[in-house]
Nucleic acid binder design. Sequence first.
DNA 1: TTTAATGTGTTGTATTTACGACATATCGAT
DNA 2: ATCGATATGTCGTAAATACAACACATTAAA
Lengths: 186, 186
Amino acid sequence: MTEAKTDPRVLRTRRLIMDSFIELSAKKEFKDITVKDITTEAMINRATFYYHFEDIYDLLEKALSEVLLVNLNGEFFPYDNLSEEAFVSIFIAITNFQKSLSTRCHRGYEDTIARIIREQLEIIFYKMLAAQSEGEEDEALKLNAVILSWGIYGASVEWKRKGMKLVPEDFIKPVLPYLLSGLDTI
Amino acid sequence: MTEAKTDPRVLRTRRLIMDSFIELSAKKEFKDITVKDITTEAMINRATFYYHFEDIYDLLEKALSEVLLVNLNGEFFPYDNLSEEAFVSIFIAITNFQKSLSTRCHRGYEDTIARIIREQLEIIFYKMLAAQSEGEEDEALKLNAVILSWGIYGASVEWKRKGMKLVPEDFIKPVLPYLLSGLDTI
DNA sequence: TTTAATGTGTTGTATTTACGACATATCGAT
DNA sequence: ATCGATATGTCGTAAATACAACACATTAAA
């Protein structure tokens, strides 16, 4: 468990890049943001950007993952298993995230963003399932995590499509019994 | 006039150190601030501190100089010569600076701070005198700058000693005729 | 007085970052 | 089409920074 801590310069630079990207995202669309824009805002060299990220899409993935994870961690990680409250908190976190995205313009990249959200959800669901299952087969856990991630994300899309009228808690409430009932089979 | 611009990392690091020092100064006295405190707050390595500054006193000098210069530049640099408004603006800048210092605790270092202020004033007065004098002897200009810097600084000390009751503009007004009258002899 | 703990300032080495140059690609205007 | 301007991604070299180790000073407690 010797977790070799990473160089402070690396952390600092990545933070500068991430923050600058988020800052710029608030001002213009993703397709209009160049690497030069980001590095200028972050006051780092353009070559340094490529030292940390494949390209601007790689940055998009990692930045979104982080924002989403921060949302989630702050919300529901007091729960260590998939309770009713956990489902509700996760759903709230996603809808909050969706709302924050809708103010910024990411037209044409909704599918990328959606994929990232689902991937993060899958990771989290898998962790929680693995924590509470008694030596269940790994592949089965993973597939369950996939289904949950798609399902919950789909619910958030539907919530958005319906005009975000209900508060997320009430919107998700009707399906909680179903989601919870199957858990003991895992 | 090839002004080789300095490495962005240097600027960034110096800014981090300066800001951390000013931040810490608001929380505790100068004598209780260690280099480790500063570098921890700035999230840089302690050795890096010594790459930029002799020691913590060197940092004190440079930080104060900068704060004072920012005060002055913002105030009076529309004036390019020593007019009545210039004197008033400079005096206001110094008293503002003194007020901001009195909230923080720098007991035992007043004389150091005073020296730094006078040195900065001397530089500025010399620049302005040189700009408006017609090929006057250099040593004479320098000595005039010295006298002005000590004089104006002394006035600010007196203003403080008198309880800061008058607004700086009114406090300095009585001596403006004298200060201005001699200028054409230079 | 001794001892332990903490701060100071320096040094050597490894890693990260800055910078300029380059080839290539994209896009808009003529 | 062709040109000019701008963005992308990569490279080598030089400079700044991180880190650990060191000797030394200061301080507080035993």
